[in-house]
């Protein structure tokens, strides 16, 4: 376990040395929140969903954006490159799990980015909404913990996309699909309650809904039961994705052995 914590710490240190990348993400976050706040005020949230006020919505959006901007850039490309060049074979020489290594790298990056993005985003929102807070602001500490679970699940998805280069040669189409899945079915742009009932239920049943909406919407609909549901759902999908990733990695190891590095 210690080695995985060290991987996270190293990835976190790496972020501190890459301050420009973080600043670029902060800039994007500010623009996004500003535009969405304006947009929301114009169309009026209550007309679409009476449960979500403009303040709740913008906080919900901030948490989704923290998930998106908090993850390491190009992880799938990096893994794809390792698969295509055969470098992944050399990674197998280390007494550490490849999938665990990549996920800890993501979590370490998130450790640094989350507080900065959240702090700046929250400050901006407070300014834009004249200090109004979302309905369940007291759930923020729990949400932050769950966001790490979400990041773990999203990272497993990204590792899957990267490893899929074994079959697809180019993982970009799959990455594109997964990314859109995160936005649409994960509700990272709009809460899933905006969708018709069938689509809402479908989205909730996917890993995207579990990593996104289920966690981020707690900011306005938190109850202990909802938090437990979100945790169980995350646990379920993390187990499934871990299984899929390990299976794919096992196939990859066999392929390397049968077809060469």
């Amino acid at each position: 376990m210690k080695k995985y914590i060290r991987i996270m710490l190293t990835a976190a240190s790496d972020q501190i040395f890459r301050i420009k990348s973080l600043l670029a993400r902060l800039f994007l976050l500010i623009i996004m929140l500003f535009v969405f706040n304006l947009f929301w005020n114009i169309i009026g949230s209550e007309k679409i969903d009476s449960n979500i006020s403009a303040v709740n919505f913008i906080w919900y959006l901030l948490l989704g954006a923290v998930l998106q901007f908090g993850r390491p850039e190009g992880l799938h490309r990096q893994i794809e490159g390792e698969v295509r060049s055969g470098d992944i074979a050399y990674r197998m020489m280390r007494p550490v799990s490849f999938i665990g290594y990549k996920c800890c790298e993501s979590l370490g990056t998130f450790c640094v980015r989350l507080p900065i993005l959240l702090f700046v985003g929250a400050a901006l929102i407070t300014f834009l909404t004249d200090g109004a807070l979302p309905d369940q602001i007291q759930a923020l500490p729990i949400i932050i913990v769950l966001l790490f679970g979400s990041m773990f699940l999203l990272s497993l998805g990204t590792v899957f996309v990267g490893l899929s280069a074994l079959y697809l040669q180019d993982s970009l189409p799959l990455f594109w699909l997964v990314q859109k899945g995160e936005y649409i079915l994960g509700g990272l742009f709009f809460p899933l309650t905006f969708y018709p009932d069938e689509l809402f239920r479908f989205a909730l049943a996917t890993p995207f809904g579990s990593a996104g909406y289920n966690v981020t919407s707690l900011i306005y609909r938190y109850t202990p039961e909802q938090a437990i549901t979100a945790t169980l759902s995350l646990g379920f999908w993390i187990s499934i994705m871990l299984g899929i990733d390990y299976l794919l990695f096992f196939i990859l190891k066999r392929k390397v052995s049968v077809n060469g590095g």
Binding site: K3, I7, T10, D87, Y90, P95, V96
Partner: peptide, 22 residues
Amino acid sequence: RSQLWYHLPARCSFDLIASIYD
């Protein structure tokens, strides 16, 4: 093929590798 973290001082990579080997 590098085993060092590109943006970090080599010392960080050494510490990490030591942890990986327990």
